[in-house]
C-alpha cells in the first residue's frame, strides 16, 4: 500500500514533499498524537523510574550518584522476598482457577447458545464495568466476621459461630480476584472457540473420535491461544493489584503493590519503591514470556 518515493533522485526537498503526500505520511501524521502522548506520558516516566531506582533517597531530595543498593535491598530483604513470592503465588492460583472456571461457560456460549450470544456476552461483561473498588468492598462486606455470608448462615441456623477461614487472608484475596477478573478470562477463550472451524469437529467424529477424545485432540488445542491470552490477561495485572489485598487481605494477604505504595507514600523512599516496582515488572514479564514460549512448544509438538 505504502507509496514508494520515485526513483531517479529528484531534489531532496521535492522528494520530502512527495513523501508528505504519500499514504505513509498520512498514517504517521494521524497516529502521531496518540503515539507522542504515550511517549511523553508513558515511555519517559518509565525511563525516569529506571533512573530513580539507581539513586538514593535523602531527606527531601535524591542523592543522584549511581548505586545498586536499592536492588540489593529489594532482592535480599526477606520482607520483600516474601511479599513478591506471595504475590506471584496468589496471582498464579487466581489465574489457574479463573481460567478453569471460565472455560466451560465460554464453551457453553460458543457451542450451545444459538441465538442469544451477544446477550450472554453482554451479561458476562456488565459487572466488569461497575466500579472495581466497590466490587472489592462488597466482598469485604460479604466475607467479613459479621458479614453478609456469616450473618446470613447464622440467621438460617446453618452455623453457630462465624466462619473464620474466609476472613482477611490470602484465600479471601483469591476469591475476590477470581471474581473480579472472570470476564477477562471468559472473553478471549470465547473468541478462540468461535474461530474453530466446526467442520474439523465433524471430521474428528467421522474418523472415530468420541466426544472426550475429540475435545482433547481438536477443540482444546485449537482453543489454546485463547487460554494463553486469558491467563496472561489475568496474571499480569493481578500481581500488581493494590486494592484487593489492602481491603480484604489482612496482614497475611498483603502483596507487593502495597509495599510499593508504602515506599512512595509514608515511607517516602521512592528509589526503593522504583526498584521494587521494576523488579516486579521484570519478573512478571519473564514469566509471561515463559508461558507463551512453552505453550508454543506444546502446540508445535501437538501438531506433529
Amino acid at each position: 500500500m505504502s507509496a514508494v518515493p520515485a526513483e531517479g533522485k529528484p531534489l531532496l526537498g521535492g522528494r520530502f514533499r512527495f513523501w508528505l503526500k504519500s499514504e505513509e505520511a498520512s498514517g504517521f501524521k494521524l497516529l502521531s498524537p496518540a503515539f507522542l502522548y504515550a511517549l511523553v506520558m508513558l515511555a519517559a516516566p518509565l525511563a525516569m523510574v529506571v533512573v530513580i531506582s539507581f539513586w538514593t533517597q535523602e531527606l527531601i531530595d535524591f542523592d543522584r550518584s549511581f548505586t545498586l543498593k536499592n536492588y540489593e535491598e529489594a532482592w535480599t530483604d526477606p520482607i520483600y522476598r516474601v511479599l513478591m513470592l506471595r504475590s506471584l503465588a496468589i496471582s498464579g492460583i487466581v489465574t489457574v482457577t479463573t481460567v478453569i472456571l471460565a472455560f466451560p461457560i465460554a464453551y457453553f456460549v460458543s457451542f450451545h447458545v444459538k441465538h442469544h450470544k451477544p446477550l450472554w456476552i453482554l451479561l458476562i461483561t456488565i459487572p466488569f464495568w461497575t466500579s472495581y473498588l466497590l466490587r472489592v468492598f462488597l466482598w469485604k462486606v460479604i466475607l467479613g466476621y459479621n458479614g453478609v455470608l456469616n450473618s446470613g448462615l447464622i440467621e438460617l441456623g446453618l452455623i453457630e459461630e462465624p466462619l473464620t477461614f474466609i476472613l482477611y487472608n490470602a484465600t479471601t484475596v483469591v476469591i475476590t480476584l477470581a471474581h473480579a477478573w472472570a470476564p477477562f478470562a471468559i472473553l478471549p477463550i470465547f473468541v478462540s472457540l468461535e474461530k474453530i472451524d466446526r467442520s474439523l469437529l465433524e471430521a474428528a467424529e467421522d474418523l472415530g473420535d468420541g466426544p472426550i477424545q475429540r475435545f482433547f485432540r481438536v477443540t482444546l488445542p485449537l482453543a489454546m491461544p485463547g487460554v494463553i491470552a486469558a491467563s496472561l490477561i489475568v496474571f499480569i495485572p493481578t500481581v500488581g493489584d493494590y486494592v484487593t489485598p489492602r481491603l480484604v487481605g489482612g496482614n497475611s494477604g498483603l502483596m507487593i503493590a502495597n509495599i510499593i505504595q508504602l515506599q512512595f507514600g509514608q515511607a517516602s523512599n521512592a528509589p526503593l519503591g522504583a526498584a521494587l516496582a521494576l523488579s516486579a515488572m521484570v519478573i512478571v514479564a519473564a514469566i509471561s514470556v515463559l508461558i507463551v514460549w512453552s505453550s508454543r512448544r506444546f502446540t508445535k509438538r501437538q501438531a506433529r
Binding site: L31, A34, F35, A38, M41, L42, P45, L46, M48, V49, I52, L232, I233, I236, P237, V239, G240, D241, Y242, A257, I260, Q261, F264, A270, G273, A274, A277, A280, M281, V284
Partner: peptide, 18 residues
C-alpha cells in the same frame, strides 16, 4: 500505544507520580 492495557495500573501510577 496499547501497552497500558496490559501494564499493571500501579506501574503507570508510580511512573507518572515520579
Amino acid at each position: 500505544i496499547m501497552l497500558p492495557l496490559v501494564l499493571p495500573e500501579i506501574i503507570v501510577a508510580v511512573a507518572l507520580v515520579v
